[in-house]
Design a protein around this nucleic acid. Structure first.
Length: 632
RNA sequence: GCCACCAUAGCUCAGUCGGUAGAGCAGCCGCCUUGUAAGCGGCAGGUCGGGAGUUCAAUUCUCCCUGGUGGCUCCA
């Protein structure tokens, strides 16, 4: 069946003479019609429709309802129109079909007019002209039915996957969880409120009406990151201060991975859809990629560093003596065409920066051992960069039943090392390429969980990509692959810092970033212009920290306020007293106290606080008067 | 992707029952030269997100699009 849709101001027709013999006479009262504000459907029923009239009626009604909803009209005109197809259905079938569609639509509450079938008619029509006002569709019963069938095959397969939820305590105790009316039971969550919220988030998947996550306002107010309407949703712009913070995090994570002993590589961001090794990997997730048309092939943008590194690994010659062996890349970016409604702030992006480190191991024993080595790398990394371990996170561990049964000791040891109860999801079958994975989830004020650190034991991809190593016996074997993102997406680390600061502010504490990430570490504020020159001299004595100078002619109170709004951790006020004494009056954000110390003592204090962490100079000019505003 | 809501100055917002708009902050100029979160005065600043429709007239009403927010769905 073919349908031409017109959204009209009016349609007016006059019935002329019969086009088909044997159609019933039309009474004089029905020989003229005028319908206003309607969706007009010119319909041609086709030969193939006769095979499945009911299916076509259902599909047609669904299409018409969809478009009527879009143009927001309840009035529909069905206008038999034979000229859309060269393979028409028999008149009887066509008539029956249109009548059934009419009945179906009336049943759904639409105001339906059907113009007479089998007559020549003259008509006048006024089409609205907006983009949806003219559409044509080819409606096939089987196609829509088949489409549903395909979808449900995948859905069915996934539905077969049975999840069992548990809480695993550090002492090894296991508690089965169940959920009823959105309430999780089976474990006493006293003292573990965030774990309860995380478990509820994972199991119930339902959330109360909440507001915008606080980090979205903060990331813009602090002139760190912003939306970029000129790109695609989830592709952000970073202002100098945001780039500074992100760059420091990137350097830090990469440095820690090098210390761990990985080998850094760099891979393309786009890959050939038709590459045989990628095809089967991708087939399960066809809708999620960004597509790029190159001059001669269709490619997709990488969603992680996985296959870039796998493609290197499959060409490598590897001995068992070299295992465990790992490759690393900080992807800038990984691209995922996430659903529109899911993209928000720094929590869920379409382009994000992810450290990704894949290790080859010979067997499960080595996998478990190496996974815990990497556990410590990730733990120390997060702790040293300023997050609280394990307080700021909740573990979600996913295992197959087979892995759980065979490695109970290992899983229990993991919970013991973590030091507080963890959530375990157990799957009846291996549905994904891994037998075990864990994530460290940050649970924000809106009870949304975002996974940061994650590691997985992958049993499938070495074979899929043809990655091998030679074992002691001289035989080629497929290794297992660990997939570690030691910090998770760098953007999410910043998200966690901002959400943490917002939560602190809500508790009446002063929100701030760790000193090593603060865009300005020291703000020098002269009491009046008389101290400007002295203040400039101080900048020279603070070469290896981020110190800047408020040289505006605002009042002292105003300059303090400006610095506080920027979350500057140390504010130095210089007036006559300080010039005389040579000591500085330092306002410490964290403790809200004012202390007196020498310039060098302050410098050393900051160097001590940021020891072992990367340093970058100021992202903007050191004189505030020389700085543009990126966002009011 | 679906449903709902939102989009007015750089920022936060008010307003126009259809006759093209206003405040505070920020900016600029001037005065003040300041002791720990907003000194005073003046000036400038808007295709009221974009396109189309209705209308003598649209920022206002209608439709579409874009961007954002919440929920759903999703989350390798």
């Amino acid at each position: 069946m073919r349908v031409l849709f017109l959204h009209v101001d009016y349609l007016e027709y006059d019935v002329r003479e019969k086009a088909l013999k044997g159609v019933p006479d039309v009474p004089q009262s029905k020989r003229h019609g005028r319908i206003e504000e309607a969706l007009v459907c010119f319909i041609s029923a086709e030969k193939r429709d006769e095979a499945n009239l009911a299916g076509v009626v259902r599909a047609a009604a669904a299409n018409i309802v969809e478009i009527a909803d879009q143009v927001r009209t309840k009035r529909i005109v069905l206008y038999p129109y034979a000229h859309l197809s060269s393979s028409l259905a028999a008149p009887g079938a066509a008539q029956e079909l249109i009548a059934s569609v009419e009945k179906e639509l009336v049943g759904r509450g639409f105001d339906v007019h059907a113009s007479p079938f089998g007559y020549y008619k003259s008509f006048r029509v006024a089409v609205k002209g907006h983009p949806l006002s003219e559409l044509s569709r080819e409606i096939v019963a089987d196609a829509s039915a088949e489409g549903k069938e395909d979808l449900s095959t995948a859905v069915k397969a996934e539905a077969k996957l049975v999840s069992h939820w548990h809480i695993l305590e550090p002492n090894g105790a296991v508690h089965h969880l169940s959920i009823k009316d959105g309430k999780v039971s089976g474990f006493h969550f006293e003292g573990h409120d965030r774990l309860r919220r995380f478990a509820t988030y994972e199991m119930a998947k339902s959330r109360e009406a909440k507001e915008e996550p606080p980090h979205v306002r903060l990331m813009r107010e602090l002139e760190l990151v912003d939306y970029e309407p000129g790109s695609d949703p989830g592709n952000l712009r970073y202002y100098p201060k945001g780039r500074l913070i992100k760059g420091l995090l990137e350097e830090f994570v990469t440095e820690r991975l090098r210390d761990y002993g990985t080998m850094e590589v760099e891979c393309p961001v786009m890959y050939d859809f038709e590459h045989p090794a990628l095809k089967s990997y991708l087939d399960r997730f066809p809708a999620r990629q960004y597509i790029v048309q190159t001059p001669n092939k269709r490619t997709f943008l990488r969603f992680s560093a996985c296959f870039g590194q796998f493609l290197i690994m499959k060409d490598m010659v590897i001995s068992y003596k070299q295992l465990p062996l790992s490759l690393y890349e900080l992807t800038r970016y990984s691209f995922r065409a996430e659903q529109r409604g899911e993209v928000v702030g720094l929590r869920r992006l379409r382009a994000f920066t992810m450290p990704d480190c894949h290790a080859l191991v010979s067997d499960v024993e080595m996998a478990k051992e190496e996974l815990m080595v990497r556990f410590e790398v990730a733990w120390n990394l997060l702790e040293d960069c300023g997050l609280s371990m394990p307080d700021d996170f909740e573990v979600g561990m996913r295992v197959t039943k087979a892995f759980w049964d065979a490695n109970k000791d290992f899983v229990a040891a993991y919970a013991k090392r973590w030091g507080k109860p963890i959530l375990v999801e157990m799957w009846s079958d291996q549905f994904f390429y891994f037998v075990m994975k864990y994530e460290w989830n940050f649970v924000d004020a809106n009870d949304k969980a975002a996974a940061l650190t994650t590691d997985q034991i992958d049993t499938e991809n070495a074979e899929r990509f043809g990655i091998t190593f030679t074992d002691e016996a001289g035989k080629k074997r497929h290794p297992l692959i660990l997939h570690l993102s030691p910090s998770g997406a760098v953007e999410r680390v910043l998200y966690a810092f901002l959400e943490k600061a917002a939560a602190a502010a809500k508790d009446g504490k002063t929100p701030m970033l760790p000193v090593w990430l603060s865009p300005t570490q020291i703000r020098i504020v002269p009491v009046s212009v008389d101290q400007l020159e002295f203040a400039r001299g101080l900048l020279d004595r603070l070469p290896d920290v981020r110190a800047d100078l408020d040289d505006s002619d605002d009042t002292l109170g105003k300059k303090i306020r400006t610095a506080e709004k920027e979350w500057v951790p140390y504010i130095v006020v210089v007036g006559k007293k300080e010039i005389e004494s040579g000591n500085l009056n330092v306002r410490v954000r964290e403790t809200k106290e004012q202390i007196e110390m020498s310039t060098d003592a302050l410098r050393k204090r900051i160097l001590a606080e940021t020891k072992g962490l990367p340093f970058r100079r100021l992202a903007e000019p050191e004189l505030l008067s020389a700085r543009p505003i990126f966002r009011g």
